[in-house]
């Protein structure tokens, strides 16, 4: 079994083969076992969340999905997933709407427009943004972004757009704390920006140069090459990158908890406080009683979050499959 067996050709080949193959079988099964462990891990996560949420699913049935109740008072306990679920989806979609144009701009800049010496440092800086821990985004969001959003976005937009008929109610809010759905969406947008930008940059770089060169040869400008050649060639992967960002936004916890206001009630305006699945779990789970209906409801919420983000991430990975090869 020692290293010296390599150069010694004189050792009996039969013995060597059995020792070698025993080691081979062992090592292969060690690796395969670790692989199976990962599969088992995902299965176990789904199963524990489902089993933990089972009492809540039994108690409330399908009503759990569209009830906006959140009443922990003993004897009148009633929990529903509607508010946190809507909060999760609305903040994530708003974050995508805010973040994708900027991410596209960064990716376009880094692949086509910027001079070579700019690309590396700027690309690295954007990637470092992804490394900043989410709690830091939360603190920065609470102490820097929330006052900014309140003074320069909520008030002017609320006054001008709030007067519009029908859609006005979305912008009209008398929330004075500043923590709101919009603030959460903005923090999320900044957090997913580097992930989407990095994916887009990588797929843009994969376009065969010949295609781009032929378009340039016809006299196309850089924007025309992007619109007519690069984007059509990469659109599936681009959507995959956006879905990856969406999957991250759905499950983000600490940053959102800091800035969304954690109010478990229906919000009519994007400048009202609300909550998301991840932040309601982070806020209420540690203080809930072991085995209580509340704890089970929170686990049921966790199961729903897992289901939603699993679907989004699976679609993202399927769309990005050509890039992964």
């Amino acid at each position: 079994m020692s290293d010296t067996s390599l150069p010694q050709a004189s050792a009996p080949p039969a013995t060597r083969r059995t020792i070698g193959s025993a080691g081979d079988t062992l090592f292969e099964w060690l690796c395969r076992g670790a692989g199976l462990f990962v599969l088992l891990l995902l299965g176990a996560i789904i199963l524990t969340l489902f089993i933990g949420g089972l009492p809540a699913f039994r108690e409330f049935g399908l009503q759990f999905l569209w009830s906006s109740d959140w009443n922990p008072v003993e004897g009148r306990e009633s929990y529903g997933a509607l508010v946190p679920m809507l909060g999760t989806i609305v903040t994530s979609i708003l974050a995508i709407m805010l973040g994708v144009p900027v991410a596209f701009g960064i990716a376009f800049f880094l692949t086509e427009l910027a001079p070579q010496w700019v690309r590396r440092p700027v690309g690295t800086a954007i990637e470092l943004l992804a490394a900043v821990p989410s709690i830091i985004f939360g603190m920065w969001g609470l102490f820097v972004l929330v006052p900014f959003v309140q003074n320069y976005i909520q008030l002017p937009f609320g006054e001008t757009l709030g007067a519009l008929p029908i859609v006005g109610v979305i912008f009209d809010s008398n929330n004075f704390a500043g923590t709101s759905i919009f603030a959460a969406a903005m923090v999320l947008a900044i957090m997913i920006l580097p992930f989407i930008a990095a994916t887009m940059r990588d797929v843009f770089n994969q376009v065969p140069p010949v295609y781009k060169e032929s378009a340039y040869g016809l006299g196309a400008t850089r924007w025309e090459v992007m619109k007519g050649v690069v984007l059509p060639y990469t659109r599936i992967s681009v959507v995959g990158g956006i879905m990856l960002g969406l999957g991250r936004a759905l499950g983000e916890t600490m940053a959102v908890t800091f800035v969304i206001g954690n109010a478990n009630r229906m919000a009519s305006s994007i400048f009202d406080p609300s909550t998301t699945i991840a932040s309601v779990v982070a806020m209420e789970f540690p203080e809930s009683l072991m085995g209580s209906l509340k704890q089970s409801s929170l686990l049921a919420l966790g199961f729903l979050l897992f289901f939603i983000s699993f679907v989004v991430l699976a679609v993202s990975r399927w769309l990005l499959r050509s890039r992964l090869k």
Partner: peptide
């Protein structure tokens, strides 16, 4: 990319 809070719940 799965939400890390769910790992906490698990």
């Amino acid at each position: 990319s799965a939400p890390s809070i769910l790992v906490g719940l698990f």
